[in-house]
Amino acid sequence: MSSTADNSSFAAIEPTSSFRQQAWQRFRRDRLAIAGGLLILLFIALASAAPLVVKYGTQHSPFQQHMMDKITVGGKLIDVVDDDGLPVGPNRVFLFGADLTGRDVLSRVIYGGRVSLLVALLATAVSLFIGLVWGTVAAYYGGPVDATLSRLMELMMAFPILLLAIALASAMQTSSLLVVVLIIGFVNWTYIGRIVRGQVLTLRKREFVEAARALGAGDLHIMFRVILPNLMAPLIVYTTLAVAGNILFETALSFLGLGVQPPTPSWGNMIREGMSYYNVAWWITVFPGLAILFTVLAFNLLGDGLRDALDPRLK
């Protein structure tokens, strides 16, 4: 049956403006969440403007190696990388020190954010898409459809997911950005899928869905035009939290050498490269690790704040 129902007839079931205002009021009072949000904006700004920041700010290219170069620090001329292969620590020329090939760690941390953020955001979009379609379809149709899809998800969840991701990444041979995005998105969708399914299960019995059906709306229309808008609140919350998880996941894959390939810096592969030198050149691992920590923290703060604002029961 075709869905020719008038859109305006569903306008009333959208979240009311007063709900939005209340939520915004609650959110605005949450200073930690605001701080998280601002921090995310800052990181995104830094990452997207990385070439400019590096050019005018740090004045070192993240790719430029200084294996044989010397710098003047405190009036003394010193090797960026000494004869035993150890790089200089934080100083006035390299604020975060140099890595093992004499590259500026600060510039690389700024550039590394591009990969980690981009991958995490895109992977979350992939998970969101799979989870949304899967959860909605399973819950909306119920019965054998739901049973089959639920069984598939149980299979998915029986996997040790990090191992699954590692195996997939190894099997793909090339680890381009897109491959990493798809893998992370694919292994993590069950989280969102379960939430969507649960929400839709309660929503599909509600009056406004019945009303839409009575007006002759088709299944697709009901699922994605009627039910979906009502899922927005939980989706926003869990998507934000999922981004935090996916940043950790991406950096873990990079740490194992399965993320984007060198010389492209990512936080995870910076830690990997510096890992065996943590005892003599701590700055190579500590700074990218702090970057991960603060970014993930920011997304978690924002996610918590959004949850408190959108779901006042939990306050």
């Binding site: 000494d82 035993d84 292969g85 150890l86 065996s276 030198y277 943590y278 005892n279 003599v280 050149a281």
Partner: peptide
């Protein structure tokens, strides 16, 4: 490990 060698030397 090459990280430890310089310290030992």
């Amino acid at each position: 490990p090459s990280s430890e060698l310089p310290r030992l030397k």
